[in-house]
Design a protein around this nucleic acid. Sequence first.
DNA 1: TAAGAAGGTCACAAGGTCAG
DNA 2: CTGACCTTGTGACCTTCTTA
Lengths: 251, 251
Amino acid sequence: GTRGSSRDYGVHSCEGCKGFFRRSIQQKIQYRPCTKNQQCSILRINRNRCQYCKLKKCIAVGMSRDAVRFGRVPKREKAKILAAMQSVNARSQEKAVLAELDDDTRVTAAIIRAHMDTCGFTRDKVAPMLQQARTNPSYTQCPPTLACPLNPRPVPLHGQQELVQDFSERFSPAIRGVVEFAKRLPGFQQLPQEDQVTLLKAGVFEVLLVRLAAMFDARTNTMLCLNGQLLRREALHTSVNARFLMDSMFD
Amino acid sequence: GTRGSSRDYGVHSCEGCKGFFRRSIQQKIQYRPCTKNQQCSILRINRNRCQYCKLKKCIAVGMSRDAVRFGRVPKREKAKILAAMQSVNARSQEKAVLAELDDDTRVTAAIIRAHMDTCGFTRDKVAPMLQQARTNPSYTQCPPTLACPLNPRPVPLHGQQELVQDFSERFSPAIRGVVEFAKRLPGFQQLPQEDQVTLLKAGVFEVLLVRLAAMFDARTNTMLCLNGQLLRREALHTSVNARFLMDSMFD
DNA sequence: TAAGAAGGTCACAAGGTCAG
DNA sequence: CTGACCTTGTGACCTTCTTA
Ligand SMILES: [Zn+2]
Ligand SMILES: [Zn+2]
């Protein structure tokens, strides 16, 4: 058979072979015995060179009037076929990923591209704002619990509810960026869904901290917020947790 | 290949080349190596001068037993080919029109020819009737609503229905003439169908008035009808609309 | 009812034929 | 040997039939 994906006379076949076999059995054609020892290989490209061997191959692969199956395909079998297809698909993808993982250059390039495309805090993206803040600094006061580069308005909000709401709004895009990044790491998508979630839960905060490194300016010992304002390193020394994080970032 | 338009061994070819190539591969003929450095150019007129080079060219353009395509041509491909043909065709037509529009002389000539061929009221066509009317004038009375050169029998008809029917019958050929004229204006046919309709709707009446100019005889201040009868300019002064049109035509 | 295959149709091209 | 004409096989699409 050639291309096409329907089942004819009990075998996956194409319109051409289906028609050929139909004609052969309908008219009980006796093809001229092959002149080449009946051993012609029947490929897509030369399928019509020897009718005798073509019919022989049709029979060999199981085409038969007795193998026809009319009507709709049972659901179970359909599911089985679908599963097989997906298995084949997954296998080929896995193969491609393994090939990529074998090539360090490609892996590195893929990771760098993933980072550049999904991180909003790369040096080149932050640079303009940082420059602006250095030449025209505006310092902000902010309680330690709210001290984060992602907080664009470092002023206390009224009400716990509002605070949480605001925080998640600020974090969401950054976290989505990290998830996007992970998904583009070679092989990540091939892991079981569950493992993907576990890995992300475990690593998303650390990755985020690394990504935010560009917002911490060691030269001036200040932290840049998304609104362009600055926060001095010493301003948070009253809170143990915040100080620990601060020191970790700067040193 | 030479002339012909069928696909043989994967290439647009003719019966001759098809047969030649078939014989060559069937009998595995080894042609005498060309005596002229195997560089004969194969053209329609000298194609049978050197078999060696002919076969070489056949192979060079891609003729091969492996390239045969059996059966009917898929619809998609057919549509694609048709679209390509039409695209090429439209492009060449557009080019021709642009060239014509660049040459004022040709444009003028085309427009004049279009007018002469599609207008039934040119001076030379009207002249005999006008001459007849001048030497032997026959005046008619006619209500202002029916006063039109296109009305061949300027007498009141009985019934509104009949009147409308009659009017459209008189106008149809004249309007068809204007449409014909527009279609022959260089570039008009290349406009989108919709725009053509819009332009015609907007302009057909004015063009028609200009075309009918020859039916208005300023020397005698009369209007000639298609039946050869005359109508005096003053006869319509009772109707404002008719008078306005009359005056526009005469002055 | 509808998915899905057998069977029919016929444009198209391979291969055969034979006068030039 | 060439190539116009003919015969025959191929397969893309369509219709008809069968079964879940
Ligand atoms: Zn064989
Ligand atoms: Zn040659």
